[in-house]
Design a protein around this nucleic acid. Structure first.
Length: 615
DNA sequence: CAGGGGACTTGCAACTAGAATC
DNA sequence: GATTCTAGTTGCAAGTCCCCTG
């Protein structure tokens, strides 16, 4: 409350920056607002309430006012980042705790699980796990042996002794009735009337309203994930050794609540208690629990639209901008490391060169029980091939490895002769599965980077290079006299260049082939039309030549126009085809969300270009 | 100085709602 | 007006990086 009094001036100062970072990612925020007048109303009331309370406060004693001043000073420090120095992230935090998924609802007795062809009644806990598998029946996962084995092992653990005795072979299990039941259920849901859907929507809104927001330093902030993750089967990415394992149901007894001391502590669900309630303001999370697959901690945190996340995001781009100023000296420093007499330094020089030039990730070491993926520092000899000459280029490095999320990175890059020589040296007398950079680690790399520029780490290069590329591409691709569609295309192309740099890929859309075929048919038709029109034009010209008249002349002109128009349409379709093909496996979202400095896109938007940034 | 835990960011896939098309 | 397509949103897995411990 005290802050309310003193923040206006500060807020005004901060406004432009906070706006851009905060709202960068969130069209949804804007949309939600326009969708939900109720919410607007609630927000207004909230503000009003705060104002009222503030008025009350104002009437209180002098002493309190003085305290408020002091509070305000603290606030100022926070604004200037001094708060962060002692690690404090907030002064007050109040919320309702996470929302738990509904209890398991047993299947109707008409839906039976079959073992060896005969119906078997499972106890609810066993049945629940069976439904997890049944729901995924038409997913590729269930055809994988690792998935099946992991599932079956974990499923058996849930079974009673009798069930376990009976069900000893997954291939004898028939989940198809259960699968069918859920398919029908989704179908039913789809066919609901508008009114029924509306009711459901309102119920969901109510929950979001109640659990989806918290009060941080007196401000109502949206929570990113206020729901506890429901139980299910773990779906790793790539060849994950743990795929299919049972992700257990999280109980309130597993959950740690983090909030301020002096506020209403969230209520655990009836009959339950929290694992712990703590009041740690050096962290930003509201609740946490340990997930059972890897033993990692999961958190309930704020939405990116919140001030806390927005500030951090802003800082990230500021660091990237700072790197721009010192990147030249850092580059010459790592280049000189290529000829160092110390192997470690050479490896450092080449690794950082890759991170800078190719926007590779740092590549931390990983646990064995995850998919085998690598980044720069964890590259192995088998992941690169050296070519003295390739495709009329000299000193080419061919990369082929699986990166984050098991996305393949394949690239052929010409490099400096000294880099090439160094790589040969690093690979010398090593096995294919040996580390390419065996003398360095991400910790070492980041330590060196931090010495070169405070706050600099490997990942900053990705942000820096992404934003730089966007700006460069925009400069290259745009001119002032372009039409709006051309500008938009240019922006998308620039965005795509960034996505390619960062290797942001997606699976080709399921309907891709189909819609592409459709498009190709359209193109073919158009081509035929063009041919036909051309023929007619030729004929018309011929007739005009033989027997010139006003009518024949007009016909020629008309046909010429038609041909021109059709050719334009054809070209447009062909362009669309190229565009779609280029975008087939490229994902633009990630770079838009995490890498491109919003300020660049804001500048585009000012020029009238719809960038897809919800500003 | 390795190894592991903790906190936070990044990234793909699945889902969903709204626009486009028939 | 129903159906299909597409873009935006959500869910949660998988990274990065920092800190602590021994």
């Amino acid at each position: 409350m005290t802050k309310e009094k003193h923040s206006p001036g500060k807020a005004a100062e901060k406004e432009p920056t906070a706006r851009t970072t905060k709202e960068k990612k969130r069209g949804q925020e804007k949309k939600r607002k326009s969708n939900s007048l109720e919410h607007d109303e609630a927000k207004k009331n909230k503000v009003k309430k705060e104002e009222d309370e503030y008025e009350d406060k104002k009437e209180e004693s002098e002493k309190k006012a003085k305290q408020a001043e002091e509070e305000a000073d603290k606030w100022k420090w926070w604004e200037e980042g001094k708060h962060a120095e002692n690690g404090q992230k907030w002064r007050s935090l109040e919320h309702k705790g996470p929302l738990f998924p509904p209890e398991y609802e047993p299947l109707p007795s008409s839906v039976s699980f079959l073992y060896n062809g005969t119906p078997v009644i499972l106890r609810p806990a066993t049945e629940e796990v069976a439904t997890f598998y049944a729901k995924m029946l038409d997913h590729e996962f269930t055809t994988k042996e690792v998935f099946q084995n992991n599932f079956f092992t974990d499923w058996k653990e849930v079974m009673t002794e009798t069930e376990r005795q009976l069900i000893s072979d997954l291939s004898q299990c028939d989940f198809s009735n259960i699968h069918k039941y859920f398919v029908e259920k989704t179908e039913e849901k789809r066919n609901m009337t508008k009114e029924e859907k509306q009711v459901l929507k309102e119920e969901a809104n109510k929950l979001t309203e109640e659990y989806g927001y918290c009060l941080l330093d007196g401000h109502r902030e949206k929570i990113g994930n206020f729901r506890v993750e429901p139980p299910g089967l773990f779906r790793g990415r790539g060849e994950h050794p743990k795929m299919g394992k049972l992700k257990k149901r999280v109980q309130p007894e597993d959950v740690i609540i983090n909030c301020s001391k002096d506020v209403k502590i969230p209520e655990p669900p009836p009959g339950h208690r929290w694992k712990k309630v703590q009041h740690d303001n050096t962290v930003t999370w509201l609740a946490s629990w340990v997930e059972n697959i890897h033993g990692h901690i999961k958190y309930i945190m704020l939405n990116p639209s919140s001030k806390l996340k927005g500030e951090k995001d802003w800082q990230k781009y500021e660091t990237a901008r700072k790197l721009k100023l010192s990147v030249d000296s850092i580059r010459s420093e790592y280049q000189s490391a290529w000829t160092s007499c110390e192997m470690k330094q050479r490896q450092y020089g080449v690794a950082l060169y890759f991170i800078d030039k190719l926007a590779l990730r740092a590549g931390n070491e990983k646990d064995d029980d995850t998919a085998d993926t690598v980044g720069c520092c964890s590259l192995r000899v088998e992941h690169i091939n050296l070519h003295r000459h390739l495709d009329s280029l000299d000193y080419v490095v061919e990369f082929d490895f699986l990166g984050k999320d098991s996305i393949r990175y394949y690239n052929k890059v010409p490099v400096e002769k000294q880099v090439y020589k160094n790589l040969k040296l690093f690979m010398n007398s090593k096995n294919p599965d040996d580390d390419l950079f065996d003398r360095i680690s991400t910790t070492y790399l980041n330590k060196k980077l931090n010495e070169a520029m405070p706050g600099l780490t490997a990942k900053v290069f990705r942000t820096f290079n992404a934003s730089t590329t966007l700006q460069e591409q925009l400069n290259q691709l745009t001119t002032d006299d372009m039409t709006l569609p051309e500008k938009i295309l240019a922006y998308n192309r620039a965005n795509r260049a960034v996505a390619i740099l960062c290797n942001h890929q997606r699976a080709a859309p399921k309907t891709f082939e189909k819609s592409m075929q459709l498009l190709q048919e359209k193109i073919k038709k158009k081509q035929e039309e063009v041919e036909k029109a051309k023929k007619e034009l030729k004929q018309a010209k011929k007739e005009h030549k033989q027997l010139p008249s006003e009518v024949s002349k007009k016909l020629v002109q008309k046909m010429e126009k038609t041909v021109k128009r059709l050719l334009e349409q054809l070209k447009k379709l062909q362009l669309l085809e190229t565009d779609r093909n280029e975008n087939k496996v490229i994902a633009l979202g990630t770079s838009k969300l995490n890498y491109l400095d919003p300020r660049i896109s804001v500048a585009c938007k000012k020029g009238g270009v719809e960038t897809g940034f919800p500003l």
